[in-house]
Design a protein around this nucleic acid. Structure first.
Lengths: 362, 362
DNA sequence: CTCGTTTGGTAAACTGTTTCAACACTTCGG
DNA sequence: CCGAAGTGTTGAAACAGTTTACCAAACGAG
């Protein structure tokens, strides 16, 4: 047995043998506990020993093994970001902005970010809570959720810190940080109405998403207050995609040739709608005003540039990360944070054409 | 001591006490080693015991703690994706597509994906290798790298499995998976030349990126072969952004009012260029053809739709993930994989206007 | 009937860190 | 001069798995 340690001395062993805390301790002729305490700034250790060991740690290039740290400390300092199981979820600027905010804040707080997609098998297997139970992560941030995602209830049951990002679900008690969709939609409607528009179509999507319902509600309320009749043919589903937006615009314009404005629930659908309008020979904004929602980066680089609601997605991500860590650290109170939105006027909107004057001047 | 186990029985303790392997062992009246072996399918254990324990594992809802597993097994089953330190890296469809491919493949191979941004302090601190040394991850995939990223050499030095994704750097021996940029650029040039274009501008970016240099080279070679004089005023940097593309197009059109086509090194710059062209009252493609490079999703939804080179980014990510795992498992040979690209013709290109006939018909 | 082999299982060591009880050694007040 | 309090350090247990050397029982062959 003893000779197992003999073969080492020969110098032909520059193998990147990772130095452990015990190696440092041995070299310093102290116990592992002492080194550990020095590294954690425990004041019980004398200045002299502390600096001596710190220098040694430096010299030996010691790096704590964080698997061992986490195993013993009960904290992984990793959080998971759950994205919806859409083919293009990662390539989507909407999610990208949020993730950007999450990652920046995570880095500052000493957390790592793990990516996960909420595929059907994944959540059916309860993998999303296993992430926590198996000690992969300390908490989970959920993006792109909707009311049908029953699995959101599992987090509370398992005691796993979790947050909904830019959506809220009443049913389960999960914390959330969202943009003020209601106010955003009101701003859009006020603006369009002010421009003289009365025949306004809505391209929406995801009526199982609370935030989307809020937009629809604001739209309906505003039109109703104005005395404008707005039946179901004024509201079409656009599936959050460019294609869907184009198809929805097509339906709207078929049903209402006199429509002067379209309000889309996100920028992508708005872009699709503009695309369709141009295809039909309509001029945007002269014949048709189009408004989006999100203010994604390229909204400013399409032709014409898109009037839209700016959502503070980066901030939402950043804040959600912060709240999640608070929860991990034991904050008891639930959180429902709402961040303000505002209208960005660009070129895709203009005064309504004064054809058949709107009925109610009110 | 014994009474430490007494207080448990009372039912007022539904605390989600996580069951450990030892709990299962105790319940099954076998040793922890036996349970471990059952779970790992070790044939040393008899069928009878194995099934008995499997059932118990099921019943007790045991989940292996993967920190402990990784600590002793030396494998974390996590890989890191390093993104460049750009404000919008996450929201960028280019990176998104690659990440999408990485994540899908990672999921299938039983790996988790961690996100990391290569900020200056981060790489200066050698955090990128610490990721490996401190046992956060088993390997690293690097996106959006360039020749100035000296830190890429650190991986080999530390013995950390790493891969370059959609770029290659000769200097360091790091594996890579890339799109065939040279062929893509040749296809673009052939196509434009075939349409009669001779005054073709190039908007490029990142000349410290090998792939970008390849595009430029192909452009220059093709024009040279045709006997078309192409001085430096035909090549402008567009910084990979829409703004940059617009500014670059502006410079090009100022210097060469007779220019009939612009070839941009990525879709975003192409979109910016189109934007600028329209701003100047030029019709695309009647007055100016514009070609992009990437085939990002929204290239098909701008006005006019963009002719571009399709890059198999999803496949690049997927393949890089696969190669990385091979390397982690000990594949010795280096890998340089090249995936084919192809031209997608849409509406932003047309025959060159026959104004001042091009000099060389060759 | 004994010896060698297979079978099924176990105890103990190991991964690398944190934490806590205990301990040796001052120092100080009474 | 003795007990109390304070200081600096350590051994050992804990975290939750994997792995290895070893062992007992069963079995077959000579």
């Amino acid at each position: 047995m003893a000779n197992l340690q003999e073969p080492r001395p020969d110098v032909s062993r520059p193998v990147n043998r990772v130095v452990s805390l015990r190696d440092v301790a041995k070299e310093a002729k102290v116990s592992a506990a002492t080194v550990s305490m020095v590294l954690n700034g425990n004041p019980r250790i004398s200045r002299a020993t502390a600096t001596r060991i710190q220098r040694l740690v430096e010299r030996m290039g010691y790096q704590p093994n964080r698997l061992a740290q986490s195993l013993s400390s009960k904290h992984t300092h990793v959080i998971a970001v759950m994205l919806p199981a859409l083919r293009h979820a990662f390539a989507d600027a909407y999610f990208g902005e949020i993730i950007s905010g999450i990652c920046d804040k995570a880095g500052k707080m000493g957390y790592k970010v793990m990516l996960e997609q909420a595929k059907p098998e994944f959540v059916k297997d309860k993998q999303h809570v296993r992430l926590y139970e198996r000690r992969f992560v300390d908490g989970v941030l959920c993006l792109g959720t909707n009311d049908r995602h029953r699995w959101l209830g599992d987090f509370a049951a398992a005691g796993c810190p979790a947050m909904l990002v830019d959506n809220a679900v009443d049913e389960f008690k999960v914390d959330s940080v969202v943009c003020d969709y209601a106010s955003g939609a009101e701003q859009v409607m006020n603006y369009l109405i002010q421009l003289g528009h009365r025949r306004i179509g809505l391209i929406t999507a995801g009526q199982d998403i609370k935030m989307a319902r809020r937009v629809r509600k604001a739209y309906e309320t505003q039109l109703h207050n104005l005395g404008v009749d707005c039946n179901d043919t004024c509201i079409v589903d656009g599936k959050f995609t460019e294609e869907g937006g184009a198809a929805a615009a097509s339906k709207l314009l078929d049903a209402h040739p006199d429509m002067t404005a379209i309000f889309a629930g996100n920028d992508k659908m708005a872009i699709g709608a503009m695309h369709e309008a141009v295809r039909r020979g309509l001029r945007v904004p002269a014949d048709l005003s189009v408004v989006g929602f999100d203010d994604l980066r390229h909204a400013a680089f399409i032709n014409p540039t898109l009037t839209t609601i700016h959502l503070p997605l980066y901030e939402v991500g950043s804040s959600a990360m912060e709240r999640l860590v608070e929860r991990i650290h034991g904050r008891p109170e639930p959180v429902k944070e709402v961040l303000p939105t505002h209208l960005i006027v660009r070129q895709s909107t203009a005064m309504a054409k004064t054809t058949t004057a709107a009925p109610g001047q009110n």
